[in-house]
Design a protein around this nucleic acid. Structure first.
Length: 657
RNA sequence: GCCAGCGUAGCUCAGUUGGCAGAGCAACUGAUUUGUAAUCAGUAGGUCGUCGGUUCGAAUCCGUCCGCUGGCUCCA
């Protein structure tokens, strides 16, 4: 009691404790405990909720502290947030007419939005970086002050910062507004920040892009400068090297180099041409997909590419998405639509006859090619296209089967992702925003049931999940799964949606035990998403080096010279007979060149045959990443290679030995 | 769709203040008979994305359209 009366506070860290007088900040704590400058923030632990505070915050109670470095997301964010302020300060020095938008820390860096008549160029970035270094060198203290809303508005009006004034207008009345200062620069900002600009050791500006003010396309387009910051040069360099690696893995580049696919300007944007090798990869995946679905009780169907527009009027999609569909085609005075989705077709099949409760669940699966008019600016290689093949399925079931069916879908999903080597994934439960009735159809009771069923399924599968309010589709809640690839990037993966809309709209039913008509529940799901996007992602995940079972060419046989050509052909033929996709390189090039070619094409196994092998009747094996594996009997290799294919192994069978 | 940048041979790129369009790799032809990531020589290949303008003259300057890239927005 009577804290105010006390002289100061006791702060504990590890097994030490120090006494601090009134007005002390955590900078004093840092000094007292001898922490280095890699401590960016502190976590304060007392009998209330642990709290993350800035080093400049005052100590106002007895507590235990924990230093937070770059590995802590709050601390990392603070450093990068400060970097964005330093960026803004530098830009204001060099281009005094800029007006500031917002400048937050983001996933791997930070950005700041500027409004100015000047068009930023890459050369400007160098100058801005230089100015930023100057600001860092000045080691300006970064201080926070609070002011009333009225004062804040006055300050930013005087500073001619209309965007800031707009933001202030939306802040709650009565609460103090925080403004950060460093040298001549000040900014409306909630923080947190590190205490000095000098804390910024390693940063880099990366790119310039347009961004609408507040993400609204009806508002001005600002110029956004992206950058990133780390604790030291090594970490920054590692991050930049990682960006290079991502570029190296770009599926658009690998797709061309490996002869997998192309997009033809003459044919139109967003439309993919699968070349022989890419088509082969796709065929293998589709074959696997179909087998796996049949095993799990799905029935494969095919449906048309176009159909009467009425179908999508009935479904409701025409109302919600018509601007994202290709324009209707007039056929004999009736409007037809290039299909943007498969659902209505599967419903028509379901509807084609009377279904008994005993027939359910009915599970129709289709690799259905759909066309959607995506805005030109969003197209991106195979990852965002206008024509794509969904690995679609619709499950019609009784309400009492819903949860078990959802569990089955999650199970299939996990199995598929694991097979392709996606070991890490994150589930999001996308539910409706209860405030926003206009964005959804159907009544609350059904929504609650469906949301509960999805959540129970996740729990039953023991999956961690995050609830995303407002992310539900207009017709129902969903589980959206993000998968993490080999580069640590997240991709939109499987989606499992409960559909509360279509059964109603198409008036489908089944006859229950009681002889009455009942409404079935519908699940809409994709596991891979779309073949285009999935395989585009796989190319990057594997860096073009597909595992054996997916490799378009699994083995290439190469004679050292012409003299072994016949033997090479015999070897290749033998392997081919064993079902291995084998090529023979009979070119006149030296063996080193042939190997290089095979390496660049990422062929898993190279079989080298020279006089030695021909004499011994064996082969010499080289793996694309393990290198020379030495001589081996042909049958031994063939059986091991086949085993690698059949097990869909992600690594070479020779890796373990 | 919006903002910015870009578009030269199959690929990666050079091309000065506007003055006859270049290289490396790939391809093709020939020589070479090769031992674990590039043998040598030669040949061919371009309406400089499109259309229009300025100019004695345009890959180069200006405009238009198309496409791509990075973002924004969007993704049933």
């Amino acid at each position: 009691m009577g804290r105010e009366a006390r002289e100061g506070f006791v702060v504990r860290w590890s097994d030490r404790s120090e006494h601090f007088i009134q007005g002390s900040t955590f900078l004093d704590v840092k000094k007292a405990f001898g922490w280095k400058n890699d401590v960016l923030m502190v976590r304060v632990i007392d009998d209330t909720q642990p709290q993350v505070l800035e080093l400049r915050d005052r100590i106002d109670r007895d507590c235990a502290v924990e230093p937070l470095g770059f590995n802590d997301e709050h601390a990392r964010g603070a450093l990068r947030h400060t970097a964005s302020h330093v960026l803004a300060q530098a830009v204001k020095r060099l281009f005094p007419d800029v007006r500031l938008g917002i400048g937050p820390a983001i996933e791997d860096g930070f950005y700041y939005d500027f409004d100015t008549g000047h068009r930023f160029t890459p050369e400007d970035l160098d100058d801005i970086e230089k100015e930023m270094r100057r600001i860092v060198k000045q080691n300006l203290p970064i201080t926070r002050e609070f002011m009333s809303k009225e004062d804040a508005r006055k300050v930013f009006e005087e500073a001619d910062e209309p965007y800031k004034v707009e933001l202030i207008g939306e802040l709650p009345d009565g609460e103090p507004i925080s403004v950060y200062r460093q040298g001549e620069f000040f900014d409306l900002c909630a923080g947190p920040h590190v205490p000095y600009t000098g804390y910024l050791k390693a940063f880099r500006l990366l790119s310039i892009a347009g961004a609408y003010w507040r993400g609204d396309e009806n508002r001005p387009m600002l110029q956004r400068i992206y950058g990133t910051a780390f604790m030291d040069k090594e970490a920054l360099d590692a991050h930049l090297a990682n960006l290079e690696e991502i570029k190296r893995r770009d599926h658009r580049r690998l797709g061309r180099e490996l002869g997998l696919f192309s997009i033809e300007e003459e044919g139109g944007p967003g439309l993919v041409y699968w070349h022989p090798k890419g088509a082969l990869v796709r065929e293998i995946i589709e074959h696997f997909w179909k087998e796996e679905h049949r095993k799990r009780g799905y029935e494969i169907v095919y449906t048309p590419h176009i159909a009467k527009l009425d179908l999508w009027e009935v479904s409701g999609h025409w109302d919600w998405y018509s601007e994202n569909m290709y324009s209707p085609i007039d056929v004999d005075d009736t409007k037809y639509l290039l299909k943007p989705m498969n659902c209505p077709f599967h419903i028509l099949i379901y509807k084609g006859k009377t279904r008994s409760y005993r027939d359910l669940p009915i599970k129709y699966a289709e690799l259905g090619t759909v066309y959607r008019y995506e805005r030109s600016g969003v197209l991106h290689g195979m990852l965002r296209v206008r024509g794509f093949t969904q690995d679609d399925a619709h499950l019609f079931c009784r309400p009492d089967q819903l949860e078990e069916q959802l569990i089955g879908v999650l199970d299939l999903t996990q199995f598929m992702l694991k097979t392709f080597g996606y070991d890490e994934f994150y589930c999001m439960l996308s539910v409706r925003d209860q405030e926003d009735k206009a964005s959804y159809i159907g009544d609350d009771e059904i929504w609650e049931q469906a949301e509960a069923a999805l959540e129970n399924a996740l729990k039953a599968k023991n999956l961690d999940y995050q609830i995303d309010v407002g992310e539900a589709k207009f017709y129902g809640p969903a589980i959206d799964i993000n998968i993490k690839d080999a580069m640590g990037r997240l991709w939109q993966g499987p989606t499992i949606q409960a559909d509360l809309n279509l059964p109603e709209r198409f008036d489908i039913h089944y006859i229950g035990e009681d002889g009455q008509r009942h409404r079935p529940v519908m699940i809409h799901r994709t596991v891979l998403g779309a073949m285009e996007r999935f395989i585009g992602g796989l190319i990057e995940h594997y860096a073009g080096a597909f595992p054996m079972w997916l490799s378009p060419v699994q083995v290439r046989v190469m004679p050292v010279s012409d003299k072994q050509s016949d033997y090479a052909k015999v070897v290749a033929k033998h392997l081919e007979k064993q079902g291995l996709r084998t090529e023979c390189d009979l070119g006149q090039d030296k063996i080193g060149y042939k190997i290089r070619q095979a390496q660049l094409e990422k062929v898993p196994y190279m079989i080298i045959v020279g006089d030695k092998e021909k004499q011994a009747g064996n082969i010499s094996v080289r793996h694309r990443s393990l290198g020379d594996l030495g001589p081996m009997g042909l049958d031994e290799f063939a059986s091991k290679a086949k085993q690698e294919v059949l097990s869909k192994s992600l690594e070479s069978v020779f890796a373990r030995s």
